[in-house]
Design a protein around this nucleic acid. Structure first.
Length: 460
RNA sequence: GUCCCCAUCGUCUAGAGGCCUAGGACACCAGCCUUUCACGUUGGUAACACGGGUUCGAAUCCCGUUGGGGACGCCA
Protein backbone atom coordinates (compact mmCIF):
# COMPACT_ATOMS: atom_id res chain seq x y z
CA UNK A 1 0.00 0.00 0.00
CA UNK A 2 1.44 3.34 -0.90
CA UNK A 3 0.98 6.16 1.49
CA UNK A 4 -1.21 9.14 0.70
CA UNK A 5 -1.20 12.09 3.08
CA UNK A 6 -2.60 15.56 2.90
CA UNK A 7 -2.25 18.96 4.42
CA UNK A 8 -5.67 20.55 4.78
CA UNK A 9 -5.56 24.16 5.98
CA UNK A 10 -8.57 26.39 6.14
CA UNK A 11 -7.99 29.64 4.26
CA UNK A 12 -9.04 31.98 7.01
CA UNK A 13 -5.63 33.60 7.39
CA UNK A 14 -1.96 33.06 6.78
CA UNK A 15 -0.16 29.77 7.12
CA UNK A 16 0.80 29.91 10.76
CA UNK A 17 3.79 28.24 12.28
CA UNK A 18 1.84 25.31 13.70
CA UNK A 19 0.25 24.60 10.35
CA UNK A 20 3.65 24.88 8.73
CA UNK A 21 4.97 22.18 11.02
CA UNK A 22 1.99 19.93 10.34
CA UNK A 23 2.61 20.38 6.63
CA UNK A 24 6.30 19.65 7.12
CA UNK A 25 5.61 16.44 9.03
CA UNK A 26 3.15 15.24 6.42
CA UNK A 27 5.57 16.09 3.66
CA UNK A 28 8.58 14.51 5.34
CA UNK A 29 6.67 11.38 6.14
CA UNK A 30 5.41 11.03 2.60
CA UNK A 31 8.73 11.78 0.97
CA UNK A 32 10.38 9.33 3.31
CA UNK A 33 8.02 6.59 2.21
CA UNK A 34 7.78 7.64 -1.41
CA UNK A 35 4.06 8.28 -1.20
CA UNK A 36 1.77 11.02 -2.36
CA UNK A 37 1.32 14.30 -0.53
CA UNK A 38 -1.79 16.30 -1.36
CA UNK A 39 -2.92 19.81 -0.59
CA UNK A 40 -6.56 20.46 0.13
CA UNK A 41 -7.95 23.87 0.95
CA UNK A 42 -10.82 23.56 3.41
CA UNK A 43 -12.91 26.48 2.36
CA UNK A 44 -16.35 25.28 3.36
CA UNK A 45 -16.72 28.23 5.69
CA UNK A 46 -17.68 30.68 2.99
CA UNK A 47 -17.84 33.63 5.31
CA UNK A 48 -14.29 33.34 6.56
CA UNK A 49 -12.46 31.90 3.60
CA UNK A 50 -10.59 34.34 1.40
CA UNK A 51 -8.58 34.13 -1.79
CA UNK A 52 -5.92 36.21 -0.13
CA UNK A 53 -5.48 33.53 2.51
CA UNK A 54 -5.24 30.81 -0.10
CA UNK A 55 -2.51 32.77 -1.81
CA UNK A 56 -0.67 33.26 1.47
CA UNK A 57 -0.82 29.56 2.31
CA UNK A 58 0.44 28.47 -1.05
CA UNK A 59 3.22 31.06 -1.04
CA UNK A 60 4.14 30.04 2.48
CA UNK A 61 4.46 26.39 1.53
CA UNK A 62 6.50 27.24 -1.53
CA UNK A 63 8.80 29.44 0.46
CA UNK A 64 9.33 26.63 2.93
CA UNK A 65 10.21 24.35 0.07
CA UNK A 66 7.28 22.04 0.65
CA UNK A 67 5.78 20.79 -2.58
CA UNK A 68 2.65 18.74 -3.08
CA UNK A 69 1.52 16.21 -5.62
CA UNK A 70 -1.33 16.75 -8.04
CA UNK A 71 -3.76 19.62 -8.12
CA UNK A 72 -4.87 21.56 -5.09
CA UNK A 73 -8.30 20.29 -4.03
CA UNK A 74 -10.77 23.00 -3.16
CA UNK A 75 -13.14 21.51 -0.66
CA UNK A 76 -16.14 23.70 -1.27
CA UNK A 77 -16.23 22.62 -4.89
CA UNK A 78 -16.99 19.17 -3.62
CA UNK A 79 -20.04 20.22 -1.61
CA UNK A 80 -22.47 18.39 -3.90
CA UNK A 81 -20.60 15.17 -3.25
CA UNK A 82 -20.68 15.79 0.49
CA UNK A 83 -24.41 16.36 0.34
CA UNK A 84 -24.84 13.23 -1.69
CA UNK A 85 -23.11 11.14 0.96
CA UNK A 86 -25.15 12.71 3.72
CA UNK A 87 -28.42 11.98 1.90
CA UNK A 88 -27.28 8.47 1.24
CA UNK A 89 -26.68 7.98 4.94
CA UNK A 90 -30.09 9.48 5.59
CA UNK A 91 -31.68 7.04 3.17
CA UNK A 92 -29.93 4.16 4.85
CA UNK A 93 -31.22 5.23 8.23
CA UNK A 94 -27.71 6.03 9.46
CA UNK A 95 -28.49 9.69 9.73
CA UNK A 96 -31.58 11.73 10.48
CA UNK A 97 -33.20 15.13 10.20
CA UNK A 98 -33.00 17.37 13.23
CA UNK A 99 -35.12 20.49 13.58
CA UNK A 100 -33.60 21.92 16.71
CA UNK A 101 -33.15 25.66 16.87
CA UNK A 102 -29.93 27.27 18.00
CA UNK A 103 -31.75 28.39 21.13
CA UNK A 104 -32.70 24.84 21.99
CA UNK A 105 -29.15 23.70 21.49
CA UNK A 106 -27.90 26.48 23.67
CA UNK A 107 -30.32 25.47 26.36
CA UNK A 108 -29.16 21.87 26.17
CA UNK A 109 -25.59 22.94 26.69
CA UNK A 110 -26.45 25.10 29.67
CA UNK A 111 -28.45 22.32 31.21
CA UNK A 112 -25.70 19.77 30.68
CA UNK A 113 -23.14 22.04 32.26
CA UNK A 114 -25.39 22.71 35.23
CA UNK A 115 -25.88 19.00 35.74
CA UNK A 116 -22.20 18.23 35.38
CA UNK A 117 -22.74 16.24 32.25
CA UNK A 118 -20.87 16.42 28.97
CA UNK A 119 -22.17 19.19 26.74
CA UNK A 120 -23.83 17.42 23.94
CA UNK A 121 -26.91 17.32 21.75
CA UNK A 122 -29.47 15.09 23.44
CA UNK A 123 -30.65 13.32 20.31
CA UNK A 124 -34.24 14.40 20.65
CA UNK A 125 -34.90 14.05 16.92
CA UNK A 126 -32.97 10.85 16.58
CA UNK A 127 -35.90 8.46 16.68
CA UNK A 128 -38.74 10.68 15.57
CA UNK A 129 -40.78 9.74 12.60
CA UNK A 130 -39.62 11.77 9.55
CA UNK A 131 -43.28 12.81 9.16
CA UNK A 132 -42.99 14.77 12.42
CA UNK A 133 -40.76 17.32 10.69
CA UNK A 134 -41.60 20.93 11.23
CA UNK A 135 -42.91 22.56 8.05
CA UNK A 136 -40.98 25.55 6.75
CA UNK A 137 -38.06 24.78 9.04
CA UNK A 138 -35.14 23.40 7.08
CA UNK A 139 -33.55 20.59 9.07
CA UNK A 140 -29.94 19.65 9.48
CA UNK A 141 -28.79 16.10 8.91
CA UNK A 142 -27.19 14.45 11.90
CA UNK A 143 -25.27 11.23 12.09
CA UNK A 144 -26.97 8.50 14.09
CA UNK A 145 -23.93 7.66 16.15
CA UNK A 146 -23.63 4.71 18.51
CA UNK A 147 -24.80 5.58 22.02
CA UNK A 148 -23.20 2.79 23.94
CA UNK A 149 -19.84 1.13 23.90
CA UNK A 150 -16.67 2.98 23.10
CA UNK A 151 -14.72 4.25 20.16
CA UNK A 152 -11.06 3.40 20.00
CA UNK A 153 -8.38 5.04 17.92
CA UNK A 154 -4.92 3.59 17.61
CA UNK A 155 -3.11 6.79 17.00
CA UNK A 156 0.38 6.68 15.53
CA UNK A 157 1.69 9.22 17.99
CA UNK A 158 -0.77 9.22 20.86
CA UNK A 159 -1.13 5.49 21.13
CA UNK A 160 -4.45 3.86 21.88
CA UNK A 161 -7.06 6.42 22.82
CA UNK A 162 -10.50 5.40 23.98
CA UNK A 163 -13.65 7.35 24.59
CA UNK A 164 -17.08 6.30 25.77
CA UNK A 165 -19.65 6.77 23.03
CA UNK A 166 -22.10 8.28 25.48
CA UNK A 167 -20.04 11.43 25.75
CA UNK A 168 -20.11 11.89 21.99
CA UNK A 169 -23.22 13.29 20.36
CA UNK A 170 -24.80 13.05 16.94
CA UNK A 171 -22.82 15.48 14.87
CA UNK A 172 -24.27 17.60 12.12
CA UNK A 173 -23.32 16.41 8.66
CA UNK A 174 -25.27 18.83 6.53
CA UNK A 175 -26.34 22.25 7.68
CA UNK A 176 -29.84 23.53 7.28
CA UNK A 177 -28.74 25.42 4.18
CA UNK A 178 -27.53 22.18 2.66
CA UNK A 179 -23.82 22.90 2.98
CA UNK A 180 -21.60 20.29 4.60
CA UNK A 181 -19.89 20.76 7.94
CA UNK A 182 -16.17 20.43 8.32
CA UNK A 183 -16.45 17.11 10.15
CA UNK A 184 -18.36 15.61 7.30
CA UNK A 185 -16.36 17.11 4.45
CA UNK A 186 -13.09 15.94 5.92
CA UNK A 187 -14.21 12.36 6.08
CA UNK A 188 -15.73 12.30 2.62
CA UNK A 189 -12.73 14.01 1.08
CA UNK A 190 -10.16 11.91 2.88
CA UNK A 191 -12.01 8.84 1.73
CA UNK A 192 -12.44 9.98 -1.86
CA UNK A 193 -8.83 11.13 -2.07
CA UNK A 194 -7.79 7.77 -0.68
CA UNK A 195 -5.83 9.33 2.13
CA UNK A 196 -4.10 6.60 4.10
CA UNK A 197 -2.56 8.68 6.89
CA UNK A 198 -4.15 11.68 8.52
CA UNK A 199 -1.39 13.64 10.20
CA UNK A 200 -2.67 16.77 11.89
CA UNK A 201 -2.68 18.83 15.06
CA UNK A 202 -3.54 17.39 18.42
CA UNK A 203 -6.53 19.70 18.62
CA UNK A 204 -8.27 17.32 16.23
CA UNK A 205 -7.87 14.26 18.42
CA UNK A 206 -11.40 14.55 19.77
CA UNK A 207 -12.74 15.04 16.27
CA UNK A 208 -11.14 11.80 15.23
CA UNK A 209 -13.62 9.84 17.32
CA UNK A 210 -16.59 11.36 15.59
CA UNK A 211 -14.97 11.01 12.24
CA UNK A 212 -14.27 7.39 13.00
CA UNK A 213 -17.95 6.85 13.60
CA UNK A 214 -18.77 8.45 10.29
CA UNK A 215 -16.32 6.18 8.48
CA UNK A 216 -18.05 3.26 10.15
CA UNK A 217 -21.50 4.44 9.15
CA UNK A 218 -20.40 4.93 5.56
CA UNK A 219 -18.74 1.56 5.57
CA UNK A 220 -15.40 3.05 4.64
CA UNK A 221 -11.90 2.08 5.62
CA UNK A 222 -10.60 4.27 8.43
CA UNK A 223 -7.23 5.88 7.74
CA UNK A 224 -4.34 5.83 10.16
CA UNK A 225 -4.36 8.81 12.45
CA UNK A 226 -1.36 10.66 13.79
CA UNK A 227 -2.15 13.60 16.05
CA UNK A 228 0.92 15.66 16.61
CA UNK A 229 1.15 17.90 19.66
CA UNK A 230 0.61 21.58 19.20
CA UNK A 231 3.21 24.27 19.32
CA UNK A 232 2.76 26.56 22.27
CA UNK A 233 3.80 30.14 22.68
CA UNK A 234 6.33 31.18 25.32
CA UNK A 235 3.41 31.38 27.74
CA UNK A 236 2.58 27.73 27.25
CA UNK A 237 -0.78 28.28 25.59
CA UNK A 238 -1.83 27.03 22.21
CA UNK A 239 -0.34 28.97 19.37
CA UNK A 240 -3.07 29.85 16.94
CA UNK A 241 -4.04 32.61 14.65
CA UNK A 242 -6.13 33.95 17.46
CA UNK A 243 -3.21 33.70 19.85
CA UNK A 244 -0.23 35.50 18.46
CA UNK A 245 0.93 32.87 16.02
CA UNK A 246 2.67 34.50 13.14
CA UNK A 247 2.46 33.47 9.53
CA UNK A 248 5.50 31.91 7.93
CA UNK A 249 5.92 35.02 5.84
CA UNK A 250 6.44 36.94 9.07
CA UNK A 251 9.40 34.69 9.85
CA UNK A 252 10.64 35.24 6.35
CA UNK A 253 10.39 39.00 6.87
CA UNK A 254 12.18 38.70 10.20
CA UNK A 255 15.07 37.32 8.23
CA UNK A 256 14.96 33.59 8.75
CA UNK A 257 15.98 31.24 5.99
CA UNK A 258 13.58 28.50 4.87
CA UNK A 259 16.13 25.81 5.66
CA UNK A 260 16.33 27.19 9.19
CA UNK A 261 12.59 26.93 9.58
CA UNK A 262 12.51 23.38 8.30
CA UNK A 263 15.24 22.31 10.69
CA UNK A 264 13.82 24.18 13.66
CA UNK A 265 10.24 23.05 13.16
CA UNK A 266 11.42 19.50 12.71
CA UNK A 267 13.19 19.56 16.06
CA UNK A 268 10.05 20.77 17.76
CA UNK A 269 8.52 17.48 18.74
CA UNK A 270 10.85 15.19 16.88
CA UNK A 271 14.39 14.17 17.60
CA UNK A 272 17.05 11.88 16.30
CA UNK A 273 19.49 11.20 19.12
CA UNK A 274 21.73 14.17 19.75
CA UNK A 275 21.42 15.55 16.24
CA UNK A 276 20.59 19.23 16.02
CA UNK A 277 21.66 20.36 12.58
CA UNK A 278 19.65 18.24 10.20
CA UNK A 279 19.52 18.83 6.49
CA UNK A 280 16.25 18.32 4.69
CA UNK A 281 17.74 15.39 2.82
CA UNK A 282 18.77 13.79 6.08
CA UNK A 283 15.37 14.57 7.58
CA UNK A 284 13.58 12.77 4.79
CA UNK A 285 15.81 9.79 5.37
CA UNK A 286 15.27 9.72 9.12
CA UNK A 287 11.76 10.96 9.66
CA UNK A 288 9.15 8.63 10.98
CA UNK A 289 5.88 9.70 12.49
CA UNK A 290 6.35 7.17 15.27
CA UNK A 291 9.24 9.20 16.60
CA UNK A 292 7.17 12.31 17.11
CA UNK A 293 6.92 13.16 20.80
CA UNK A 294 3.64 13.39 22.62
CA UNK A 295 4.16 16.60 24.50
CA UNK A 296 3.61 20.11 23.25
CA UNK A 297 6.65 22.24 22.55
CA UNK A 298 7.20 25.93 23.04
CA UNK A 299 8.60 28.19 20.42
CA UNK A 300 12.03 29.49 21.39
CA UNK A 301 13.26 32.42 19.36
CA UNK A 302 16.86 32.49 20.69
CA UNK A 303 17.33 28.95 19.47
CA UNK A 304 15.79 29.83 16.13
CA UNK A 305 18.25 32.72 15.91
CA UNK A 306 21.16 30.50 16.65
CA UNK A 307 20.12 27.97 14.04
CA UNK A 308 19.60 30.69 11.50
CA UNK A 309 23.08 32.00 12.20
CA UNK A 310 24.36 28.57 11.36
CA UNK A 311 22.50 28.37 8.08
CA UNK A 312 23.46 31.92 7.19
CA UNK A 313 27.12 31.05 7.56
CA UNK A 314 26.58 27.96 5.48
CA UNK A 315 24.61 29.71 2.74
CA UNK A 316 26.01 30.61 -0.63
CA UNK A 317 27.39 34.15 -0.74
CA UNK A 318 25.79 35.08 -4.04
CA UNK A 319 22.38 33.95 -2.81
CA UNK A 320 22.70 35.95 0.40
CA UNK A 321 23.93 39.00 -1.46
CA UNK A 322 20.85 38.78 -3.63
CA UNK A 323 18.56 38.57 -0.61
CA UNK A 324 20.30 41.49 1.07
CA UNK A 325 20.21 43.66 -2.01
CA UNK A 326 16.52 42.92 -2.43
CA UNK A 327 15.85 44.23 1.04
CA UNK A 328 18.18 47.21 0.77
CA UNK A 329 16.50 48.52 -2.39
CA UNK A 330 18.18 50.78 -4.93
CA UNK A 331 21.69 49.48 -4.48
CA UNK A 332 24.14 50.82 -7.06
CA UNK A 333 26.25 48.40 -9.11
CA UNK A 334 29.25 49.37 -7.00
CA UNK A 335 27.32 48.68 -3.80
CA UNK A 336 26.21 45.37 -5.20
CA UNK A 337 29.70 44.33 -5.99
CA UNK A 338 30.93 45.29 -2.53
CA UNK A 339 28.16 43.35 -0.84
CA UNK A 340 28.94 40.30 -2.91
CA UNK A 341 32.63 40.48 -2.20
CA UNK A 342 32.15 41.36 1.44
CA UNK A 343 29.55 38.68 2.14
CA UNK A 344 31.93 36.21 3.70
CA UNK A 345 32.80 38.63 6.48
CA UNK A 346 29.25 39.93 6.73
CA UNK A 347 27.41 36.65 7.09
CA UNK A 348 29.65 35.42 9.84
CA UNK A 349 28.30 38.17 12.04
CA UNK A 350 24.56 37.96 11.56
CA UNK A 351 21.78 35.82 12.93
CA UNK A 352 19.07 37.05 10.62
CA UNK A 353 18.81 38.58 7.20
CA UNK A 354 17.60 41.76 8.88
CA UNK A 355 20.83 41.97 10.82
CA UNK A 356 22.78 41.09 7.73
CA UNK A 357 21.14 43.95 5.86
CA UNK A 358 21.93 46.40 8.65
CA UNK A 359 25.52 45.29 8.74
CA UNK A 360 25.92 45.50 4.98
CA UNK A 361 24.48 48.97 4.59
CA UNK A 362 27.79 50.81 5.06
CA UNK A 363 29.06 49.22 1.87
CA UNK A 364 26.32 50.97 -0.11
CA UNK A 365 26.74 54.48 1.27
CA UNK A 366 28.13 57.36 -0.71
CA UNK A 367 30.84 59.60 0.72
CA UNK A 368 30.98 61.20 3.04
CA UNK A 369 29.38 58.40 5.05
CA UNK A 370 27.59 59.19 8.29
CA UNK A 371 29.60 58.40 11.39
CA UNK A 372 27.63 57.11 14.38
CA UNK A 373 28.12 58.62 17.83
CA UNK A 374 30.00 55.60 19.06
CA UNK A 375 32.26 55.66 16.04
CA UNK A 376 32.88 59.37 16.49
CA UNK A 377 34.11 58.68 19.98
CA UNK A 378 36.81 56.54 18.43
CA UNK A 379 37.99 59.34 16.18
CA UNK A 380 39.92 61.35 18.74
CA UNK A 381 42.40 63.96 17.56
CA UNK A 382 45.24 61.49 18.16
CA UNK A 383 43.40 58.79 16.24
CA UNK A 384 42.85 61.12 13.33
CA UNK A 385 46.52 61.96 13.29
CA UNK A 386 47.35 58.27 13.25
CA UNK A 387 44.96 57.66 10.37
CA UNK A 388 46.34 60.54 8.39
CA UNK A 389 49.84 59.15 8.86
CA UNK A 390 48.68 55.66 7.94
CA UNK A 391 46.97 56.68 4.75
CA UNK A 392 50.08 56.95 2.52
CA UNK A 393 51.22 53.53 3.70
CA UNK A 394 47.91 52.04 2.64
CA UNK A 395 48.04 53.89 -0.65
CA UNK A 396 51.38 52.29 -1.36
CA UNK A 397 49.89 48.78 -1.26
CA UNK A 398 48.01 46.90 -3.98
CA UNK A 399 45.02 47.03 -1.66
CA UNK A 400 44.76 43.32 -1.26
CA UNK A 401 43.66 42.19 2.17
CA UNK A 402 47.03 40.65 2.96
CA UNK A 403 49.02 43.67 1.79
CA UNK A 404 46.81 46.01 3.79
CA UNK A 405 47.30 43.96 6.90
CA UNK A 406 51.06 43.93 6.46
CA UNK A 407 51.07 47.67 5.93
CA UNK A 408 49.03 48.37 9.02
CA UNK A 409 51.03 46.02 11.20
CA UNK A 410 54.27 47.59 10.04
CA UNK A 411 52.84 51.04 10.66
CA UNK A 412 51.73 50.06 14.14
CA UNK A 413 55.20 48.81 14.99
CA UNK A 414 57.00 51.92 13.87
CA UNK A 415 54.46 54.21 15.45
CA UNK A 416 54.72 52.14 18.66
CA UNK A 417 51.01 51.88 19.17
CA UNK A 418 48.72 48.91 19.63
CA UNK A 419 46.93 47.49 16.66
CA UNK A 420 43.60 48.35 18.23
CA UNK A 421 44.55 52.01 18.48
CA UNK A 422 44.73 52.12 14.72
CA UNK A 423 42.23 49.46 13.73
CA UNK A 424 39.32 50.93 15.66
CA UNK A 425 39.59 54.47 14.27
CA UNK A 426 40.13 52.94 10.86
CA UNK A 427 36.94 50.95 11.32
CA UNK A 428 35.07 54.06 12.36
CA UNK A 429 36.29 55.86 9.28
CA UNK A 430 35.56 53.07 6.81
CA UNK A 431 32.32 51.70 8.26
CA UNK A 432 31.03 54.61 10.28
CA UNK A 433 30.44 52.14 13.11
CA UNK A 434 32.50 50.70 15.93
CA UNK A 435 31.83 47.17 14.70
CA UNK A 436 32.24 45.65 11.29
CA UNK A 437 33.77 42.68 9.54
CA UNK A 438 37.56 42.40 9.70
CA UNK A 439 38.95 45.82 8.88
CA UNK A 440 41.44 44.66 6.25
CA UNK A 441 38.69 42.84 4.47
CA UNK A 442 36.51 45.93 4.61
CA UNK A 443 39.26 48.14 3.22
CA UNK A 444 39.97 45.69 0.43
CA UNK A 445 36.31 45.38 -0.49
CA UNK A 446 35.85 49.15 -0.54
CA UNK A 447 38.87 49.50 -2.76
CA UNK A 448 41.62 52.06 -2.91
CA UNK A 449 39.72 55.19 -3.89
CA UNK A 450 36.76 54.70 -1.62
CA UNK A 451 38.79 53.57 1.39
CA UNK A 452 41.32 56.35 1.12
CA UNK A 453 38.50 58.79 0.51
CA UNK A 454 36.61 57.69 3.61
CA UNK A 455 39.78 58.02 5.66
CA UNK A 456 40.32 61.50 4.29
CA UNK A 457 36.72 62.41 5.14
CA UNK A 458 37.15 61.19 8.67
CA UNK A 459 40.44 62.91 9.33
CA UNK A 460 39.40 66.20 7.93
C1' G B 1 -18.38 21.56 34.16
C1' U B 2 -17.46 16.97 30.94
C1' C B 3 -14.12 14.22 27.99
C1' C B 4 -9.23 13.50 25.94
C1' C B 5 -3.93 14.22 26.03
C1' C B 6 0.66 15.45 28.33
C1' A B 7 4.64 15.83 32.37
C1' U B 8 13.40 14.98 32.11
C1' C B 9 17.73 21.44 33.00
C1' G B 10 14.59 28.31 31.80
C1' U B 11 13.62 26.20 26.45
C1' C B 12 14.02 22.03 22.61
C1' U B 13 15.24 17.19 23.57
C1' A B 14 18.27 11.98 24.40
C1' G B 15 16.64 8.17 27.44
C1' A B 16 12.30 1.80 25.26
C1' G B 17 14.17 -1.56 33.83
C1' G B 18 20.43 -2.03 35.29
C1' C B 19 24.97 1.49 30.24
C1' C B 20 22.17 7.54 34.38
C1' U B 21 26.78 10.26 39.62
C1' A B 22 20.70 11.53 33.69
C1' G B 23 23.60 12.93 27.76
C1' G B 24 23.26 16.86 23.81
C1' A B 25 21.63 21.72 21.92
C1' C B 26 19.94 26.88 22.75
C1' A B 27 20.08 30.54 26.44
C1' C B 28 23.01 32.09 30.77
C1' C B 29 27.95 32.69 33.58
C1' A B 30 33.47 32.44 33.51
C1' G B 31 38.10 31.69 30.65
C1' C B 32 40.73 31.29 25.93
C1' C B 33 41.17 33.28 20.85
C1' U B 34 41.15 38.45 19.03
C1' U B 35 41.73 44.89 15.41
C1' U B 36 35.70 45.54 16.87
C1' C B 37 31.55 42.45 16.74
C1' A B 38 30.57 37.71 15.82
C1' C B 39 32.44 32.73 15.06
C1' G B 40 35.19 29.04 17.38
C1' U B 41 36.89 26.76 21.76
C1' U B 42 37.36 25.23 27.24
C1' G B 43 34.78 24.92 31.69
C1' G B 44 30.43 25.97 34.83
C1' U B 45 25.25 26.69 36.85
C1' A B 46 20.84 23.92 35.78
C1' A B 47 16.02 18.71 35.27
C1' C B 48 13.61 13.05 35.96
C1' A B 49 6.44 17.43 39.31
C1' C B 50 4.71 14.75 43.91
C1' G B 51 2.97 10.26 46.50
C1' G B 52 2.21 5.22 46.43
C1' G B 53 3.08 0.52 44.30
C1' U B 54 5.55 -3.62 40.92
C1' U B 55 10.81 -5.26 40.84
C1' C B 56 16.95 -7.60 43.34
C1' G B 57 16.87 -2.82 40.65
C1' A B 58 12.50 2.61 37.91
C1' A B 59 13.55 8.79 34.67
C1' U B 60 11.83 4.36 32.24
C1' C B 61 6.01 -0.16 34.10
C1' C B 62 1.06 0.51 37.10
C1' C B 63 -2.24 3.63 40.22
C1' G B 64 -3.37 8.24 42.42
C1' U B 65 -2.46 13.54 43.24
C1' U B 66 -0.94 18.06 41.38
C1' G B 67 0.18 20.99 37.30
C1' G B 68 -0.26 22.17 32.05
C1' G B 69 -2.71 21.74 27.41
C1' G B 70 -6.62 20.52 24.06
C1' A B 71 -11.73 19.57 22.73
C1' C B 72 -16.73 20.18 23.81
C1' G B 73 -20.37 25.00 17.15
C1' C B 74 -25.43 24.34 11.74
C1' C B 75 -15.97 27.20 12.76
C1' A B 76 -12.25 24.63 10.62
Amino acid sequence: MTVVTRFAPSPTGYLHIGGARTALFNWLYTRHLGGTFRLRIEDTDRARSTDEAIKLIIEGLKWLGIDWDGDVVMQFARAPRHAEVARQLLAEGKAYHCYCTPAELEEMRNKARAEGKPMRYDGRWRDRDPKDGIPNVPPVIRLKAPQTGETVIDDLVQGRVTVANEVLDDMVLLRADGTPTYMHSVVVDDHDMEITHVIRGDDHLNNAFRQYQLYQAAGWKVPEFAHVPLIHGPDGAKLSKRHGALGVEAYRDMGYLPETMRNYLLRLGWGHGDDEIISTKQAIEWFDIKDVGRNAARLDIPKLDNLNGHYLREADNARLAELVIERLKDVSPVGRSRIERGMAGLKARAKTLVELVDNARFYTLARPIPISEKAKALLTPEAKKLLADLSPALAATDFSEAALETAVRTFVETARVKLGQVAQPLRAALAGEPTSPGIFEVAAVLGRDEALGRIADATR
